[in-house]
């Protein structure tokens, strides 16, 4: 019972999700992902990693070969819970003969939003995504950015507890992207869970609490963004004068010297201190010592470089 209770605390709890197309193409090879309620979670990975397939399985668009787990506390594929879920697919298409307001009304009705609520919500959302003036214009007149903003509004019509967005900033200009980021944080503050699939790593870094990296149909890394990026990729020591005197000693530590800067690869504090001692022994003043942290891009590249990826253990990060 304890396990069941814990399971329902996750907004998304995917266990051993597999998808094989035909007999040979394994798009997903046993994915385990957990997303806490109220989190902004980012899914990233190279092209063909299976990200879109995973998102489509969550939204019942693709049928999994095997899947356990829950979405908002109900088994994966439970249609009732889709009433509390919003989804923006990548490269979405809306019926060209509908206006922006009609699009929201149509998808709101399919989402079982009552008529009076639909009208009020559509008006509010069109205003939120700056499309009020275009509400009665057919969507075939919309630019890509406008369609993207309408798509986000569509995903929010039912006041979802879980919002799944596939490349939400695709086609948006920098101002539009910033607004989407603000909207996501606003949704999070309102208690919603956001599941993001995006190639824009810098944007994921700005908004996500946790991320998972999917490589070759498996989760290669998963965890809090801060945890994943806390490791230092290198330490950089900047001295106040030239380091020619200390060059040979520093080289023994494996450091590279460039003018007044010493670079030490890796995360070993002992070596950093040794390098500082060498400089002090020679009376060289130290201006700064800076750890260079892993960026999301570094982590992604590292994960991709792991080659044959083994299934990552089910991560159960502490709540709150």
């Amino acid at each position: 019972m304890e396990g069941l209770t814990e399971m329902t605390n996750w907004a998304v709890d995917l266990i051993d999700v597999r998808k094989t197309y035909g007999r040979t193409v394994e798009a997903l090879r046993g994915v385990n992902i957990q997303v806490g309620r109220g989190e902004i979670f980012g899914l990233l990975g190279p092209n063909g990693a299976g990200k879109s397939t995973l998102v489509k399985i969550m939204m019942t668009v693709v049928r999994p070969t095997h899947a356990l787990g829950t979405l908002l506390g109900r088994p994966l594929g439970h249609r009732g819970k889709l009433e509390r879920t919003g989804y923006l697919p990548e490269n979405h298409r809306f019926p060209h003969y509908l206006t922006g307001a009609q699009v929201l009304d149509y998808y709101g009705a399919l989402g079982k939003v009552p008529r009076t609520r639909r009208r009020a919500k559509a008006k509010e959302l069109l205003d939120r995504v700056w499309l009020t003036q275009w509400a009665d214009t057919k969507v075939d007149k919309y630019s890509k950015g406008m369609l993207q903003r309408l798509g986000i509004a569509q995903a929010l019509m039912n006041d979802p507890e879980l919002i799944v967005l596939d490349e939400p900033t695709d086609g948006l200009d920098p101002v539009g992207r910033r607004d989407v980021r603000e909207l996501l944080i606003e949704l999070k503050n309102m208690g919603a869970t956001v599941f993001l699939n995006s190639h824009m790593l810098s944007e994921l870094e700005m908004v996500c609490d946790r991320v998972a990296i999917l490589v070759q149909g498996l989760v290669a890394r998963q965890g809090r963004l801060a945890q994943l990026t806390e490791r230092a990729i290198e330490y950089r020591i900047t001295a106040a004068k030239d380091l020619a005197d200390a060059h040979s000693k520093l080289a023994v530590l494996g450091a590279s010297v460039d003018g007044r800067t010493v670079r030490l690869a890796g995360d070993e504090l002992g070596k950093v201190n040794e390098a500082i001692d060498i400089l002090r022994e020679r009376g060289i003043p130290i201006e700064s010592v800076e750890p260079q942290r892993f960026s999301l891009e570094d982590i992604l590249v590292e994960a991709m470089g792991d080659g044959a990826v083994a299934p990552a253990p089910i991560a159960r990060p502490a709540k709150g």
Binding site: V61, T85, H92, R93, P95, Y107, L110
Partner: peptide, 18 residues
């Protein structure tokens, strides 16, 4: 065929309708 186009069907199938 129009309803089943990629990008169009995804939105519809994500709604609570069998």
């Amino acid at each position: 065929p129009e309803m089943m186009r990629l990008g169009a069907i995804d939105v519809v199938l994500s709604k609570p309708i069998s």
